[in-house]
Simulated assay, not measured.
Amino acid sequence: MPEVDGQNRHCGYLDIDEMDTKKKFQHRYLIVDRKKGLIQWFIDKPMKASDEDKPCGIINIGYITKVDVASKAKVSYCFVINTPFRPYYVQTINQVELEEWVEIINDASKITTPNSRDPTGSQTSLDASIDPEQTFTYRTEIVGGVVVKKKCTLDGQVVKQDEPTSPTSLTHPDQHFQFPNVGSKIIKQGWAIKQGHVRKNWKRRYFILKQDRFAYYKSDQDKEPIRSIPINEILAARAEDEMKPRDNLLLLATTDKIYYIQAETEDDMYEWVDAFCNAININR
């Protein structure tokens, strides 16, 4: 059953499908940390801040779009945490525990749902669900056809995340540490044409996609990029066939912008789509 620790975080042991197979669940200790806006899980209950307490997985609460009972799962007492990247299936030991965890995580992500144990079916009000120590809420937007929840202040201003929340860089409750950087390998590089965000003109740029970030340059000889984007800020990449008359067009959705990139050939465009999908999967 979920418990509350000394830092006012909901914690407990659950079985989590880490590889998104809905077949192999791992027994993990899960922590819902509202203050940091993170859900993390560990092999065992962390006893102190140390390298041995690195989380096995992490979810940015701001990316959660819905938490609900996984009615199509073939295991009992299972719920699903939906994000733009992938669903996370979690199994509890009984129905009561399942309902409690769904309510806790929905409340943390500011999604209010009817309490199934309340015969009136009434919903918890938004004001009642706000943590007094928490000074932000979330806003749902559609970015490149992807549902995204952005952290905002109570007056509606989008909060810029200071720390990336991918597995390559995490903030521990008691100390800051970084996993070894494994993102130096180049996945794909080459010339393409990108649409500007202000004048909407198209310019030829040199693109380099690595395991941990994506950057574009004025020239393949330049050392400093025009812009560099961490992979954990990329939400989706797909072929864009609705924007005419441009052919071989790629749509790249990030947490704050939509990029339109025209490849030289159709094959090259699909290679970029596959490369971005691989990079996103590596950083899950």
Rank of each mutant, 00 (worst) to 15 (best):
L250I: 08
E264F: 06
I226F: 02
A237Y: 04
E224H: 10
S129Y: 05
G190F: 05
K160V: 12
N60A: 06
V102D: 03
T137A: 08
F136L: 05
T124K: 13
T112E: 07
F136A: 04
P55T: 04
P119S: 13
H172V: 02
D68Y: 11
P119A: 06
T124F: 07
D5L: 09
A49L: 03
D212L: 09
A215H: 00
F177V: 11
T120S: 13
G190P: 02
Y77M: 04
Q7D: 15
K188F: 02
E224T: 11
P173A: 05
R86E: 14
Q178K: 14
T168M: 12
K218Y: 09
N248Q: 07
S71M: 06
T171C: 11
M47Y: 05
L209A: 08
T92K: 02
Y216L: 05
H27A: 13
P173C: 06
L14C: 02
S184R: 12
Q161A: 15
Y260I: 09
A253I: 04
V75F: 09
L209N: 12
A73P: 02
G190K: 06
K23L: 11
G62R: 05
H176A: 11
N283S: 11
K194I: 02
K244R: 14
D107N: 12
L209R: 08
T83F: 03
G57E: 01
K74M: 05
S116Q: 10
I16M: 08
S184T: 13
H172P: 03
T165R: 13
D15R: 15
H172M: 13
I61S: 02
V198D: 08
D267E: 15
N248K: 09
F25M: 04
N82W: 10
D222I: 00
I261R: 01
A279W: 06
V273Q: 03
R227P: 00
I58N: 11
I93E: 13
K194E: 06
K210S: 10
S116T: 11
V159I: 15
W191I: 07
I105T: 10
I64N: 04
N232A: 07
R246W: 05
R205E: 06
R213Q: 12
I208P: 01
D174A: 07
E97Y: 08
Y260P: 00
D118W: 01
E233K: 15
K150V: 07
L98H: 03
F25P: 01
K244H: 11
V96M: 13
D212H: 15
V273T: 05
E100I: 13
T135C: 07
W272E: 05
P2T: 03
S122W: 05
Q211Y: 02
P114N: 11
N8W: 07
I105G: 09
L38M: 08
P225L: 12
D118Q: 01
Y88S: 01
D33M: 06
D68T: 14
